[in-house]
């Protein structure tokens, strides 16, 4: 196990390092002068010279890269060119919206998909199963941003039950904050629910066909007891794996959902940064998201190897 862990950890470190190099190259080296990227080609020479000096862009690219990475090890991401505040501070503020959104979506998706998946499997090839599979097929085809717009039309424009967008901040009261996140959370949860429902259903069906379940039933165990005692415990392993991998999808999905509902989260921050050509923010937020994806994959690999010894032996 320790050899497997060491190999996976090394691979994880190489991937994060590679990701940082790619981000730096794509933003600061390949497009040419970052000062021109930020100010535009029509900017006066004096302004370009000033920003070069201010952001240290007159130094060689390699030195700037090393400085960036060294700063990250000290928890520093530099100053936002537009907001003139540390990028870590900006991200910290915005995570107050992004994190509850991502966690809420995962919780809703997990609860709904487990219930629907188990229901569909226990009603295999009956109308309930077809209904759930139809929902799942539709959920995969509906773009989440369109689903968000439809929810806004129904719950904000027609029924006036919930706000159409924006976030008042947690200082304005927990309930007001939660109210503004209800539609975004359900929007974000749709696609995840569709995928996890399918996985839950097929996993429960597969385990239910195993010999040990048949033996348990033959020994007189009721359907319900076999389901809860034997099937679910084993069927949930692949569901949790997929759920883990979907965390990365949720985190990057918030980039879209926050724009649909005008939520001041990290997703809104990065698209504003693109419009304002604030490369310092773009660079660090992209690395943060890429690192989250890699960390989640790493954790899922480890958990999966703990559960299934064949994985670590083959590796």
């Amino acid at each position: 196990m320790s050899v497997f862990l060491a190999r996976r950890f090394l691979s994880f470190l190489i991937t994060v390092f590679g990701a940082s190099v790619i981000i730096f190259l794509l933003l600061e080296v390949l497009p040419g002068d970052p000062a021109l990227t930020m100010l535009g080609v029509d900017a006066p020479d004096s302004a370009i010279a000033a920003i070069r000096l201010e952001l240290g862009l007159d130094r060689p690219a390699f030195v700037r890269y090393v400085d960036w990475i060294a700063g990250l090890f000290h928890g520093e991401m530099g100053l936002s060119y537009v907001y003139k505040v540390p990028v870590t501070e900006l991200i910290g503020q915005r995570l107050q919206v992004t994190l509850p959104l991502a966690i809420g979506a995962m919780v809703v998706a997990t609860l709904v998909s487990l219930s629907l998946g188990i229901f569909a499997a226990t009603n295999h090839n009956r109308i309930g199963d077809y209904g759930v599979m139809g929902f799942s097929q539709l959920g995969l085809a509906i773009p989440d941003f369109w689903f968000g717009i439809l929810l806004i039309i129904l719950f904000a424009v027609i029924l006036h039950w919930l706000p159409s967008g924006g976030f008042p901040g947690w200082d304005e009261g927990i309930w007001r904050g939660i109210r503004s996140l209800i539609l975004p959370v359900f929007t974000q949860a749709l696609g995840l629910t569709a995928i996890m429902t399918r996985v839950t259903r097929s996993s429960v069906l597969e385990v239910a066909r195993e010999d040990y379940v048949r033996t348990a039933r033959a020994k007189g165990l009721s359907r319900r007891a076999a389901l809860w005692g034997h099937v679910l415990r084993n069927a949930l392993v692949p569901v949790l794996t997929i759920g883990g991998l979907l965390v990365a999808t949720v985190v990057t999905g918030t980039l879209i959902i926050e724009n649909v509902f005008a939520l001041p989260g990290v997703g809104k921050l990065i698209f504003d940064a693109i419009s304002n050509r604030d490369l310092m923010v773009v660079k660090n937020v992209v690395l943060l998201f890429a690192a989250i994806v890699v960390v989640v994959n790493f954790i899922v690999d480890i958990l999966y190897a703990l559960v299934d010894p064949r994985i670590r032996i083959h590796s």
Partner: peptide
Amino acid sequence: MRLSDLNMAFPVILIAILLTAGW
């Protein structure tokens, strides 16, 4: 496969953000 891992670290939207911010 390690290059593929690296590629997987960048979902479509992150690649698009990088390309848009640069070009």
